[in-house]
């Protein structure tokens, strides 16, 4: 199995799709000569030329709008929005246009658009460049939302996103770009809506996304020292959500912790908690715990940033609470 970084895995999916398929192209701010502000599209201009690796003006609304136009005209555009914080500027295009066309046209129009965007705290980017806003998009019928946590998942899920006929918002986490991991020799799609069980356990289920998958795995190892056996489930696709895997896991363990970097309030964890209490009520032996950022703008100061965002120790504390061991 070859090993790729998370960054290389994402580039590999895009490049391979562009080699096989003339309809696929990428566009975004500074993605051509500069290779993107996170270096994800580096080298792609040389291989595919400026018609297929397109720099855009600094207008997220225009970039996403152009992506929608290309998608409804039969292309499979991949749009890069430099920071997910800037997605706020593209919400009208995404929520009002991309998410609605297929339904309002009675299925006559498809929008096979992929919007790649990244973000997350942990490197002191400040309040306007550090948010995790995935929950905003989960509230909108008509789009799919993906959040990959490993190189293999990033490549397989991006592949499926590109070839999905619906608009997909594909979240990447800034601190994972250099994470290296094995990927299958042959590129292959990972079905959207399928969770990955990273680790099996008997006592507590942690449902974690993005960076928190890795924090959850660390917490699980710590908990194991304490005789607490932890199962770690990464939904990978937040919409559609693999409720079946999550519920089956909680029915087995009787306890559930949901962990994400986004703020707890009204977050993805709230939806998971609701699903779990509804579908596994008679199996719960403890209240569902949620782990996430404190309800505050992310501070610049590294020490304060660290205080606001969740880490493995916060996940472990939640695991221990579900076991009545706090």
């Amino acid at each position: 199995m070859p090993a790729l970084t998370y960054r290389e895995a994402i580039r590999d999916a895009m490049s391979e799709a562009m080699r096989r398929d003339d309809d696929v192209f990428v566009m975004g701010e500074d993605i051509a000569e500069m290779g993107g502000s996170m270096g994800v599209t580096q080298g792609m201009l040389d291989e595919f030329g400026p018609d297929r690796v397109r720099n855009t003006p600094i207008s997220e609304m225009a970039i996403v709008g152009a992506g929608i136009g290309a998608a409804v005209s039969g292309m499979r555009p991949i749009v890069e929005v430099m920071y997910q914080d800037f997605m706020t500027l593209a919400m009208e295009q995404l929520v009002q246009q991309a998410a609605k066309h297929r339904f309002m046209s009675g299925g006559q129009i498809k929008v096979p658009l992929t919007i790649r965007t990244q973000g997350g705290a942990g490197w002191s980017p400040g309040a306007q460049h550090a948010q995790q806003l995935e929950a905003w998009f989960l509230h909108v019928p008509g789009i799919k939302v993906v959040f990959a946590s490993t190189p293999a998942d990033a490549r397989g899920l991006l592949w499926s996103s590109i070839y999905d006929d619906n608009p997909v918002v594909f979240f990447e986490h800034r601190t994972l770009y250099n994470l290296k991991g094995d990927v299958p020799a042959e590129i292959d799609g990972i079905e959207l809506g399928r969770a990955r069980v990273h680790r099996e356990g008997e006592d507590v289920t942690i449902v974690a996304t993005g960076r928190l998958v890795h924090e959850a795995l660390k917490a699980a190892e710590e908990a194991e020292q304490d005789g607490i056996s932890v199962e770690v489930v990464d939904p990978r696709t937040l919409l559609p959500l693999d409720e079946e895997t999550i519920v089956a896991s909680v029915r087995k363990t009787s306890r559930c912790v949901v962990a994400h970097e986004a703020v707890v309030r009204m977050g993805f964890g709230a939806e998971v908690a609701a699903i779990v209490q509804h579908q596994a009520f008679d199996y719960l032996d403890a209240p569902v715990e949620r782990v996430g950022a404190k309800f505050a703008p992310i501070p610049f100061a590294p020490v304060m940033e660290e205080y606001v965002i969740p880490h493995a120790e916060d996940v472990l504390a939640a695991v221990r609470r579900t076991m009545g061991k706090d």
Binding site: D282, L284, A286
Partner: peptide, 15 residues
């Protein structure tokens, strides 16, 4: 300790 006569138990314990 009971809470106003209601026994405090987890859903799993109740089942």
């Amino acid at each position: 300790m009971e809470n106003g006569g209601r026994v405090k138990a987890s859903p799993l314990a109740r089942r």
